[in-house]
Design a protein around this nucleic acid. Structure first.
Length: 281
DNA sequence: ATGGCAGAAGCATTCTGA
């Protein structure tokens, strides 16, 4: 089963590129971020014509998330819910449409567009940290139900300096602070695993390149789009790849899709024999 | 090199992103 995430930076502007990519790759589930469209204007038909169902949670101009799936999603939830131990209260996060979740094939799919945070001095940075705290609380509730979880999206955080093309220049800045990384760790709590790092230990792999300064042509990127899976799913993980090819399109999104392949019929208990290595980067 | 580039709203320019 192929599960992908892609920040498309406007679904209406990028629609033909998304359809082209789906025709080429044939994902089972595609989670989108920054759709930038209200639900009444979401382009459902192009996806239905390809045999997909669409669930979406959007707003005008900003944010917006969607789950496109061959198998119809169950128990679709829009925004945070539960979050009993969240401080501040989840109500302040409901205006910005940044999270949609659903159950597909026995897996809880959680699609997130984490706030960027702007700069360390900004109120938006505090909002980002609080949003991640709420996400941690949200996941605590999910884990109580002992569900298999696949948490993916645009996290706007480089988990380590390996995920930045020039760490000396950017470390301590937005997307690369200890505060953000701790907030992300608090979401994952060692129970959710970065799929990409199971297969690739080296730097030089990016999912986002700034539109400015010729960043893509110079390959000056960041790895800020991630797919995290429950430990219990890791034995079924066959691959995780970043497909940078759509970034070379005319009028591209600034993000590339990231995709995992899960073999839901195969279990390999030995896969995690040296699992401690996965947490040392 | 705190610039530059892209999208939405809406028609000149501002806001936002990362």
């Amino acid at each position: 089963m192929l599960i992908a995430t892609w920040n498309v930076n406007s679904i209406r502007t990028r629609l033909s590129q998304i359809i082209d990519w789906m025709n080429k790759v044939n994902p089972d589930i595609l989670c989108l971020q920054e759709t930038k469209v209200m639900d009444g204007s979401f382009p459902i038909e192009p996806f239905e014509n390809l045999g997909y169902t669409a669930e979406f949670y959007g707003q005008k101009s900003y944010n917006g998330v969607a789950i496109i799936s061959k198998i119809k999603a169950n128990n679709v939830k829009k925004g945070f819910y539960g979050c009993k131990d969240s401080e501040p209260n989840i109500d302040i996060f409901q205006d910005q449409k940044r999270l949609i979740s659903a159950e597909i094939n026995g897996i809880k799919i959680i699609n997130v567009y984490v706030p960027n945070g702007s700069s360390l001095e900004s109120d938006k940075f505090e909002y980002k940290i609080n949003w991640l705290s709420c996400l941690a609380s949200f996941l605590n509730e999910q884990e109580k139900k002992e569900e298999l979880i696949c948490l993916m999206g645009d996290f706007n955080i480089a988990p380590s300096n390996l995920d930045i093309h020039d760490p000396e220049k950017y470390e301590g800045g937005i997307m690369a602070t200890r505060i953000e990384r701790n907030a992300l760790d608090n979401v994952l709590k060692g129970r959710l695993i970065d799929s990409f790092r199971i297969f690739e230990k080296n730097t030089g792999h990016w999912s986002w390149w700034d539109y400015r300064n010729n960043a893509y042509e110079l390959n000056k990127g960041w790895r800020i789009d991630h797919i995290y899976i429950s430990k219990e799913l890791s034995s079924k993980l066959k691959s995780c790849v970043i497909d940078s090819s759509p970034r070379a399109n005319l009028r591209p999104s600034d993000h590339a899709p990231v995709m995992i392949d899960l073999n839901l019929n195969e279990i390999n208990e030995d896969f995690f024999e040296d699992e401690d290595d996965f947490f040392e980067i």
